[in-house]
Amino acid sequence: MARGLPGVWSTVLSIPFLASGAIIYFGDTPSPELLGAPLLVFGAFVVAMGWYVHLVAAPPEPRLRDEEEIIDTRHPTQKAPLAKVGLSLPFLFAAGFLMFFTTQPYVYPMGAFVVGLYLLSTGILTYWTNSLTTYYITTERVINSFRLLSLVRKEVPMEKIRAVRESKSPIESLVGVGNIRVASGGGAGLEIVIRNVNDATAFADELRGTLKSDG
């Protein structure tokens, strides 16, 4: 089972879409009934995907080699997706207000809807992927484990790491998380991006320390 309660929180997030969609579609409102259909579909999609993510097996721990030990295990924090979801709400509320309580041209409610929906969608997406992702630093490798349909495991051997870079988007800076790019110098295929981790700098330093001790 995935970390956290993605099924529950996805259901909570879908409630405004399902409720408003049902009211518009089945109720006696002045809005076109069909306007409720896409809202219902989106709400149902969020619920279904949320529970799939919730119930799908989390990636198992990697099998360690002889004398290999796990130094640190990290999960992406959910601060960044929560911030995106939080940011989306004013836009979505504004879109609803402009749509149903004013007669402003459609460009205004739709503009707010697009921005809000983008933030919400990327927030939910990040939340789900974070729930299914685990990072490991062992004495020999850096491993990224992800499992949605099937297990995907990327790893970079310590001896091949050539660079450790940190980066933060504005929202990530705001909520105190960061990304660490671990490059092997062997092309993009041998690169791991550790996303949305707390204390990214400390984690990067820990990684660099491991490299030095290896060297």
Binding site: S31, P32, L34, L35, A37, P38, L39, M99, Y106, P109, M110, F113, V114, L117
Partner: peptide, 8 residues
């Protein structure tokens, strides 16, 4: 608005 919402 229905088409626009569906598109989004």
């Amino acid at each position: 608005p229905v088409t626009l919402t569906w598109a989004g």
